[in-house]
Structure formats: structure tokens, C-alpha cells
């Protein structure tokens, strides 16, 4: 009967659609298993103590030094610097957009922020080489401007759209009544912003920062191009650095398949994966707090 057949079609397609949902779980699981499996192969040869406490990443040397510390320190330094720049800029811009900009100005500013988000990372890295690098070299009177500071500035640019957009949503989610209450009590609009609105939006602002940080930590091309790629523990922002992502990008293309060095790159990727995963989960935790708070 025709209706039976149509309902059967519906059922079959439903299962098919459901399978795609299961595949997304499988994809996350697959990435996790790939990283763990290859990391185990790595730790069969190199002790985790050396990996986490050594001072050198030098797979080419006779003994083979595989310490993640210089890479981790580089990644952390560049990301920290980018957040120092992007967090205040991003949150103040979001506050301006949602609290003070007239709607006509908003209509201009929002596309600008979306355009900034659309610029490919490789183009930003390119500017790090041709524009920001020489600029830093000149200002600080150093030979080479390809260093952590350069990477931080570029990553700040890349993280800004995320931070601005999510912060703005968070600020907009603060009920109007909060502001009205504050203004009614005689506070001016600045006191209201800094003492009422922004604190109320805090969980959402933290979520915005976490997502921006996740983006900065995981970015490859800009840091690969603009930070100088020296794999030593950096002493400051003017040192050249080499992040985890850049190390994978540089070395994966050259290592022989299934050697200790090959597995080592998966091991550092696993560490990066766990870091970004926890930061994203933390961001989600705060985003949920904001939602519950206002529900």
C-alpha cells in the first residue's frame, strides 16, 4: 500500500540522517583515538618525564630531544600576549557597539567586524612579515621583528571578531531593567556600564575570552609565518618563538612515516587538543551560567 511505502521511506531516511549525527560523534572520537594511539607509540620510546620537563625540542640531534616545554611556553606566551591586546579592545568595542553606538553606526561597524573575521589567516601572517615585523624591528631597534610580539599582535586581530561578537551578545543579554534600576538610583551611564552592566555580563564575557583564546592557541599559519620559529624557551616578547601548531606544520611534511619524531608530533598535537578542549569546555560552562542567570 502506498502509505506504508511512504512511511517506510520516511523511516529509512530518518535512520540515514541519524547516522550522520552518529558520524559526528565518531569524528570527534576518531580524532581523539588517533591522537592517543600515536601518543602511546611515542611514549613507548620517550619517557613522559623527559617530554614534560626537558628543556629542548631538537628531534634532529643524535639523542633526540623531545621536550614540549619550549613549544608550550611559546604557545602560551604568544596567546597570552594576544589576549592582553584583544580582551580590553574587544570588550570595550562590544560595550561601545551595544550601549553607545547609534543603530546607523552599528550597521557600518558590524560588517567591518565580519570582514575582519573573513580575512584568511595566511594573509594576516603575510602582513606580519611585510608590515608588523619591520615595524617592530624599527621601534625596538632589533634586527628581526619576527617574534612573539608580532605573533601576539596578529593573533589579537584574529581573535577580536570572536571576542567582540560574543561579548556584545553577552552585554545585550543583560536585562534592561538592571540598567534602568541603576540609572534610577542616580548612577550615571558610565557607572552603570562599569558597575552594573559589565559585571552582570561577566560570565558571557569570560566565555567570549575563552573562545578567543581557543582560537589563538589553535591558529597555525600566522604564527608559523610571523614568529621566527626558534624552538627555545622564550625569555620575553621580543624573542623568536615556535608554537606547537607551527612545529607540527613545519616538521610533519618532512618526517619519515611512523618514526619517533612522527609520533612526537601527534603527542604535542594531543597536548594542544586537550588544552583547547578544556578551554572550550570552560567557555561553554560560563556561557551556560549566563543563560541560566537570565532565564
Amino acid at each position: 500500500m502506498s502509505i506504508k511505502k511512504r512511511e517506510k521511506t520516511d523511516w529509512v531516511l530518518k535512520q540515514l540522517f541519524k547516522a550522520t549525527g552518529l558520524v559526528t560523534i565518531g569524528l570527534l572520537g576518531g580524532i581523539f583515538i588517533m591522537l592517543i594511539y600515536n601518543s602511546i607509540a611515542f611514549f613507548a620510546n620517550i619517557s613522559p618525564i623527559d617530554f614534560f620537563t626537558g628543556a629542548q625540542w631538537d628531534p634532529g640531534s643524535a639523542k633526540g630531544n623531545y621536550s614540549i616545554l619550549p613549544l608550550l611556553a611559546s604557545t602560551g606566551l604568544v596567546a597570552l600576549g594576544s589576549m592582553l591586546i584583544a580582551v580590553p579592545l574587544g570588550i570595550f568595542t562590544a560595550a561601545f557597539l551595544s550601549e553607545f553606538a547609534p543603530s546607523k553606526l552599528q550597521a557600518v561597524l558590524k560588517p567591518i567586524i565580519e570582514m575582519l573575521a573573513a580575512i584568511p589567516s595566511v594573509a594576516i601572517g603575510f602582513l606580519g612579515i611585510v608590515l608588523v615585523g619591520p615595524g617592530i624591528a624599527k621601534i625596538f631597534g632589533i634586527q628581526n621583528g619576527l617574534n612573539a610580539l608580532n605573533g601576539s599582535i596578529l593573533l589579537a586581530v584574529m581573535a577580536l571578531p570572536t571576542i567582540v561578537t560574543i561579548s556584545e551578545d553577552a552585554i545585550n543579554a543583560v536585562p534592561k531593567s538592571y540598567r534602568e534600576a541603576s540609572l534610577a538610583l542616580g548612577a550615571n551611564k558610565w557607572e552603570t556600564l562599569f558597575k552594573v552592566t559589565l559585571p552582570a555580563a561577566l560570565p558571557g564575557l569570560i566565555a567570549a575570552v575563552m573562545l578567543g583564546l581557543g582560537r589563538a592557541l589553535g591558529e597555525t599559519m600566522t604564527v608559523l609565518m610571523a614568529t621566527g620559529n626558534a624552538s627555545a624557551i622564550p625569555r620575553g616578547f621580543l624573542d623568536s618563538v615556535r608554537t606547537i601548531t607551527a612545529t607540527i606544520a613545519i616538521e610533519m611534511g618532512e618526517v619519515p612515516y611512523r618514526t619517533t619524531h612522527y609520533f612526537a608530533l601527534f603527542a604535542i598535537a594531543a597536548v594542544l587538543f586537550l588544552i583547547t578542549l578544556s578551554i572550550n569546555l570552560l567557555g561553554e560552562f560560563f556561557a551556560n551560567r549566563l543563560r541560566k542567570f537570565h532565564a
Partner: peptide, 12 residues
């Protein structure tokens, strides 16, 4: 969580 994974890891 997939959306938050660094793109280089997708490369791997």
C-alpha cells in the same frame, strides 16, 4: 567541540 579543534589537527 569539533568546532573548537585547531585546524592543524584536522590536517593530521
Amino acid at each position: 567541540n569539533l568546532a573548537g579543534i585547531p585546524s592543524i589537527i584536522y590536517g593530521l
